[in-house]
């Protein structure tokens, strides 16, 4: 029944396009964030003992994810395991009941997603990750919105990484193919010069060739010293490039090891990688 919902959000099923525009944002405004505290030591990113969810029921149970500088960490697991939720928790889009998130010697658990961007996190959502009516170049510019310095060098680096974007830089991002759009999305996140890049299923819906290409680029990004945390459906391929792999089941760590070791683990292979 509608009465259980927030009355301000109750549209009574109205979908009138002549008066309302659908698809508003879900993020809260940056009004209630706290401050970061120094917390030296430990891994570069340390999201430890995270517990929480959207409503009353927890989705994450004591989940821990860490990434070292310049390394690639991959989260895999069955559908509904809470992979994307864990990622959102690291990024501050989820209220945690327990646990903390530390980045580069600072405890950022109390920060809003926007503040985390300023602290050096770059996030590429799985869907709706570009500004469709804006050109590729404008997308990149918007990525650099919080930067006060000259960002042209960074833009050149992005174009070097994804040469196709340079050719299409005047074209609206919404008109690009799925793979190219993912490149724009990654490029936009790189424009802030993040220390940690988080990718939510970057290869969802792209062809195997494009997937390999994307993974190559991700390795290149990691080589420049940027840490990568990503969620992947294509577990086998992703673990192949992973320095560290996390297998989540029902919101908790099931297996944690190097990507190589996980691929070699017969138990993991049998249950999660299809033999």
């Amino acid at each position: 029944m509608s009465s259980s919902r927030n009355p301000y959000k109750d549209d009574r099923g109205n979908k009138d396009r002549s008066i309302t525009k659908s698809g508003g944002g879900e993020l809260e405004y940056p009004t209630k964030g706290g401050k970061a505290r120094p917390a030296p030591g430990g891994p570069f990113l340390a999201a430890e003992n995270m517990t929480g969810g959207y409503g009353a029921a927890d989705i994450l149970h004591d989940c821990t994810l860490t990434v070292e500088k310049g390394q690639i960490a991959v989260i895999v697991g069955p559908n509904g395991a809470g992979k994307s939720t864990a990622m959102k928790a690291v990024f501050g889009m989820l209220n945690l009941r327990g646990g903390h998130v530390k980045l580069d010697g600072e405890d950022i658990t109390a920060l809003t997603p926007q503040d985390r961007v300023a602290k050096g996190m770059g996030f590429v959502p799985q869907v709706n990750n570009v500004f469709p009516s804006m050109s590729v170049e404008e997308n990149l510019e918007m990525g650099a919105f919080i930067r006060k310095d000259d960002f042209r060098a960074t833009m050149e680096q992005v174009y070097d990484l994804f040469p196709i974007l340079k050719d299409k830089r005047r074209q609206p991002a919404g008109e690009l193919s799925g793979g190219q759009r993912q490149q724009v999305a990654v490029g936009r996140a790189l424009m802030t010069k993040p220390k940690l890049l988080m990718l939510d299923e970057p290869t969802a819906g792209v062809s195997p060739i494009v997937m390999d290409e994307l993974f190559d680029r991700i390795i290149e990004v990691a080589r420049t010293g940027i840490s990568i945390l990503m969620v992947e459906q294509n577990a086998r391929q992703a673990l192949e490039i992973a320095d560290r792999g996390y297998v989540l089941v029902q919101g908790a760590n099931k297996y944690t090891d190097t990507g190589e070791a996980l691929l070699a683990d017969p138990e993991v292979r049998r249950t999660f990688l299809g033999g």
């Binding site: 109205n14 979908k15 009138d16 396009r17 002549s18 008066i19």
Partner: peptide, 8 residues
């Protein structure tokens, strides 16, 4: 294709 009742 989409609902335009208000303006109509």
């Amino acid at each position: 294709r989409s609902d335009y009742l208000a303006i109509a």
